[in-house]
Design a protein around this nucleic acid. Structure first.
Lengths: 188, 188
DNA sequence: TATGACATGTAATCTGTTACATGATTAG
DNA sequence: CTAATCATGTAACAGATTACATGTCATA
């Protein structure tokens, strides 16, 4: 039933709704006011996405009741929605995840703690770390092979990609340390 | 006439076709065999994109003539196409370019040398450098403001974004140096 | 009472994905 | 001759962008 592929925007919405219910408008404001605008801050994307999620049973909307209130529909994630969110967060990081941009991995991590707990967050980081290591060596091999065929600027652009991944790796390492530190005595 | 917005895939095709004419199949192979797969290696994207570019007068296709050859259409960029490509490469880097991912900036830089010359390539790097500096401080400000409201993992994910941009900045610095070095006595 | 911000949505259009279709050429 | 590969495409669908439409409430 709910086994349809959910696009990144859908997960972004699920992740934001999970800690507390919000309206479409609230979500839009979050997108446009933070650096989450990458996930579309246009109503033509958000409202249809919410409708799809509701149709799939992952969220449920209720019109707010109360005196003197504007019509406002609050969405909350259902158990099925939480489970889908968890599955997305907890699946291991693949080569494809890295090729297609770290954006989605970071989104998963951002929601990991509140949606799936500290262990899941750390597991995600470790999985990322492992996959990055093999990916980076693959990139170096590709760089060697391409060196003669592409112009200088092409090579430099490729090296930028490598550096970006190395940077991500070093972040992951320090994030694991930071994270384990901060949860000592915390929610864990 | 040709003032329509061209998606990233279109520019990727233009950039690859500019140094030498190629067929749709050749382009597809480049995409799928290198880390340019991000720009779609599916025929359902590439062939329609080529048709659009031809309709806009940015490329022109000619069926290869020759004995015993399979039907094969070679596309080459027209003067209008080269001019569009140059305009895309040469426009200054904006905040929006950074927010929406460095991918496209890197694509522009990768083609900069062969399509617009060494000066344009360096100008692009300097523009990137300048925009990055203001963007990074803006990100730090946002981090301060959000620190109390988001969970640990959210904060760490955000810091990853900051680090990524700092990494890009340091790459840009070294790329300028590298680039100026390599073109001493070169094509310049 | 009229202006603007709040809140929600729809319609047209464009692009990309997936999956399939077609024909030509080469290797076995 | 048959199978695989080369080379080109199309059709159905999903999702995003843009622009517009609608109605509510606060305030000047």
């Amino acid at each position: 039933m709910s086994e349809k592929k959910i696009p990144a925007l859908g997960y972004a919405l699920l992740g934001l709704l999970q800690p507390q219910p919000q309206s479409g408008y609230d979500l839009r404001k979050i997108f446009s006011s933070t650096s989450m605008k990458t996930y579309s801050d246009s109503p033509g994307a958000i409202y249809p996405a919410l409708q799809r999620l509701e149709k799939q049973g992952l969220i449920r909307g209720k019109v707010e009741n109360g005196v003197g209130l504007r019509r406002r529909q609050l969405f909350r994630v259902t158990p099925a929605g939480l489970s889908a969110l968890r599955k997305w967060i907890e699946r291991p990081v693949t080569r494809g995840d890295l090729v297609w941009g770290q954006q989605e991995i970071m989104l998963r991590f951002a929601f990991a703690h509140s949606a799936a707990g500290a262990d899941a967050a750390i597991a995600l980081l470790r999985s990322l770390e492992a996959e990055l290591k093999t990916y980076i060596s693959a990139l170096y091999e590709e760089l060697d092979k391409m060196k003669e065929f592409v112009p200088i600027s092409g090579r430099l652009a490729f090296e930028c990609g490598i550096r970006g991944n190395e940077c991500l790796l070093s972040w992951a390492d320090s994030a694991i340390a930071d994270y384990e530190n901060e949860i000592k005595g915390g929610t864990r």
